[in-house]
Design a protein around this nucleic acid. Sequence first.
DNA 1: AATTAGCACTCAGCGACACTGAGTGCTAAG
DNA 2: CTTAGCACTCAGTGTCGCTGAGTGCTAATT
Lengths: 334, 334
Amino acid sequence: MLDERKLAVLRAIVEDYVFTIEPVGSKSLVDRHGLDVSPATIRNDMAVLEEQGFIAQPHTSAGRVPTDKGYRLFVDRLSSVKPMSAAERRAIETFLAGAYSLDEVVDRTVRLLAQLTRQVAVVQYPLLSQSRVRHIELVSLSPRRVLLILITDTGRVEQDVVELPEDADNESVSHLRAVLNACLDGHKLTDAANTVAGLADRIAVAERPNASAVFSVLLDSLAERHEERVVFGGTANLAAPDFANGLRDVLEALEEQVVLMRLLGESASPSALTVRIGAETGLEGTSVVAAAYDAGGQAVARLGVLGPTRMDYPGTMGAVRAVARYVGRILGES
Amino acid sequence: MLDERKLAVLRAIVEDYVFTIEPVGSKSLVDRHGLDVSPATIRNDMAVLEEQGFIAQPHTSAGRVPTDKGYRLFVDRLSSVKPMSAAERRAIETFLAGAYSLDEVVDRTVRLLAQLTRQVAVVQYPLLSQSRVRHIELVSLSPRRVLLILITDTGRVEQDVVELPEDADNESVSHLRAVLNACLDGHKLTDAANTVAGLADRIAVAERPNASAVFSVLLDSLAERHEERVVFGGTANLAAPDFANGLRDVLEALEEQVVLMRLLGESASPSALTVRIGAETGLEGTSVVAAAYDAGGQAVARLGVLGPTRMDYPGTMGAVRAVARYVGRILGES
DNA sequence: AATTAGCACTCAGCGACACTGAGTGCTAAG
DNA sequence: CTTAGCACTCAGTGTCGCTGAGTGCTAATT
């Protein structure tokens, strides 16, 4: 039904349209690409492609524009991820390697992605539940308040104040700290719930109320609260060419963590690229290219870019994939 | 030179123009405001105002539009800050009171300001140098690395990894921690430099290299690095009416911490409102209304909003002032 | 001296109109 | 199946004239 040439025509249309943001007609198509058939032939092919819903005309007597479905086919079958050049890879590596704290890694990643793709970059912080406890610190602020600090192997540091039901002296705080570290060190936070349950007998009865206050903050608040932390950057790229229409919607989406999370989507297989086109994202005319990144093994979180449906998919996918890999590598090291 | 009525005319022009984003003519001015003179008289006044540079015509045979200079005069002499209603004040208070960590306070403040003013909100984190040390924690990560955690009385928690020149056992880390806390607790970070200098004799010679590594991170890195941390929100408000022109510039400015800092400006007297109009901000057609906020006494940092020159200054100033006050109050409590 | 009525003038915005050219679909021939 | 040829469509552009809001100036009025 769609022979080789028709697919080539679709590919050419997508490529041309992405380049010159204008409807592409049969003539210019034949010229620019090495198709050695006449425009009339192309027109027939285009008629078929249009009938199938891969391309559309903005109005009669205008060239064709790819539809969401057209982009979909292009991404799935007509294009391949464009690998970064050696120079680009080196630039990515050195740029990311200069970061010290986790915050800085994430910040740099956002900037990098935005610059590389000339689009809006979105990066999710490494999930706490996936990472392992490196250290837990308790600092007594006042008799009834302690500061709980959690350090993970992905370099993330989370803190929260715990209000204690009873006064706690330094000694009992120290004891609790020691117990927590002894039991949780190296464990995933997801496993912590089970582990903590078995702690009761190692704690004096008198201290249990305080201990369980700390536990509940550790499990509920810290583990969950920042799960969804997502940052973005490169919004200036929204102002570029034609994006003026859905702009408000996009900006609003960016400021809502929950929406942003949904846009990044859930990973199928880690490190696989996810491409969501147009309506699939819930934002008219907007596509999202995302990937999971990992730190030393398991998937940790996701990152990606958000841009107009009309975007350079192969290049964007290449950039996202490369950045995801290097971020994983950096995080895995520390 | 500018009698009472001419000033009234300017005020009316600003108010009308801000309301109906259209050049305002002599006729509609007389109608809408209770000026009991004829349009012709107003025209004479407008001619003078134009000559003085307070208003301008987009083209001949169009109404007048305020110039930056016109807005300046309006803000300085023709308007007064519009106080928030009791209901609004209550809403602000309860909204901010719900926040626990400093991050959350800042986050909520940004959202609040953006919503209240329907503009882009910008909030600077409390300056470290202004706050006092509540506690310093050292956590040994490996023989050659310790994590330095600084907790301030504004609730801010900063951490950084220190690479040690020599191996350090737990005991020496503990000792260092004790010394640091003993000496710095309750001191301002700005004073810390002096204080630290006197620490040398309390530390064994063998440990001095490690100690000074920690000191330098504490003084240089922590104290300075995040000085300039500024967050913003409400960018969706940029997409609203007519702002489409300078949009790219504004978005770019927002993503550059340094530029953002400059926009917030340096406070004259704390809690005084600063209004910078048009060219004064360095961004064509953009104004900034900012204020310092404090936590229990001294000025801590600044916050404000950024919007089109054509904005409701009295209302915006009222909102900024109110939010600055409540943020200060919240931070002062903790 | 300030205000006002009257009047001529300017010009952005808008609809009407026609022209152009890129692009199409169809048909008939290769 | 491909292609040449041709009639057709229509967005975009430019021209023209009109309208109306708004101005500036002058002369009369207070």
